[in-house]
Amino acid sequence: MAAPEKGAYINGHHESVLRAHSWRTVENSAAYLLKVLRPDMHILDVGCGPGTITVDFAARVPQGQVIGLETTTATQEEFKSNVAMRGVSNVKLVVGNVLQLDFPDNTFDIVHAHQVIQYIADPARALREMRRVTKPGGFVAVREGDFASLTWYPEEGLRGLQDWIDAHYRVARANGGEPNAGRRLIAWACEAGFDRTAITATASAWCYSTPEERAWWAGLWVDRLRYSSFAKSFISLGYGTQDDLDRMAQAMQKWSASEDGWYAAMSGEILCRK
């Protein structure tokens, strides 16, 4: 089995991955942006996936326009389905690369990326390109996870969860990415040309604790550990076997069955005014 292509999204677009991404909304994944949204804004949503955040933006800027950007057409059917479900018409999907955006300078009021630049080998270059296509007075908005912050309970007997985190670090970094991206966003934004005084940094977290939340989160990761591009990369890079991935999946199932189970994942956020 060949090693994964450098710079490709390590999780791929398996159904289990899209299941996770389709849960995301502006409210639970980009709430730090709500204070600057106006109904006539033009927004570029980089790495939009199935488009649930994208179409949520579109519903919130009815006099504006929203473009979702993806590197592949793999999510277009899910994107179209979400557009139809929300009944918005001011949104479209385009294929492109954040490192070379096919838009003129000063095009958008907001250029947004959610859990994207942590997978890019040159995040400052991505932010620089996002800044280029942002209008003066507009915003570059980014939210990225920080894997060192992942926390769960109970910990006893769940070594497989730490093994999963370690596996993610190895696969992501072999691909040129940085899993602890959240803490680095200010530094990357400054490197991209933003003045420090123009950067507002915040943090927020997802938390899964109810039986339904635990079952959902563990269920999608059990499938990702068995069928997604992450699993294939883990094996092809020589980091372990499917048996190792199955042990991680079993630990997630055990955690999900714990009545006092709790899991939280922090993300860093930056709102950069151009």
Rank of each mutant, 00 (worst) to 15 (best):
R159T: 15
T134L: 04
A31R: 13
G68M: 07
V142K: 02
R24N: 06
P136R: 10
K80M: 09
G157E: 08
T107W: 04
D246L: 13
P123M: 05
L271W: 02
F194M: 05
V83C: 04
G160Y: 08
L150F: 14
M252A: 13
G7S: 11
T241K: 09
V111C: 09
K80E: 14
R159K: 14
P62R: 07
E144L: 08
A174W: 12
T25Y: 03
T241P: 06
A215N: 09
G261V: 09
A167W: 07
S29G: 14
F147I: 09
E77T: 14
P179L: 08
D102H: 07
A167Q: 06
A126N: 03
H114I: 01
Q63D: 13
R143C: 06
K92Y: 00
S209W: 12
A192S: 11
S229W: 00
G240R: 05
E77K: 11
I199L: 12
A113P: 03
R196K: 15
H42T: 13
G219F: 08
V36L: 10
V36Y: 11
F230W: 10
E27C: 01
V26E: 08
H112D: 01
R131Y: 02
M85T: 14
D163E: 14
Q242I: 02
V94E: 13
R38N: 09
H14P: 00
S229P: 02
R131D: 08
A84H: 11
F103Q: 06
E77A: 14
Q100I: 00
T200M: 10
A124D: 06
D109L: 08
C272F: 01
V222G: 05
V94F: 01
E191Y: 02
F57G: 04
P136V: 12
V98M: 03
G182I: 05
V133F: 07
H114V: 04
V98C: 11
D246Y: 05
A167S: 14
L220Q: 13
R38I: 00
A181E: 04
P62N: 08
M266I: 12
K274P: 10
K254L: 13
K80D: 15
T151F: 13
R131V: 01
R183P: 00
E78N: 12
V140A: 07
M41C: 03
L93A: 04
A3R: 14
W23H: 12
D246E: 15
E77H: 11
G12W: 01
R173S: 12
T72L: 02
I270M: 04
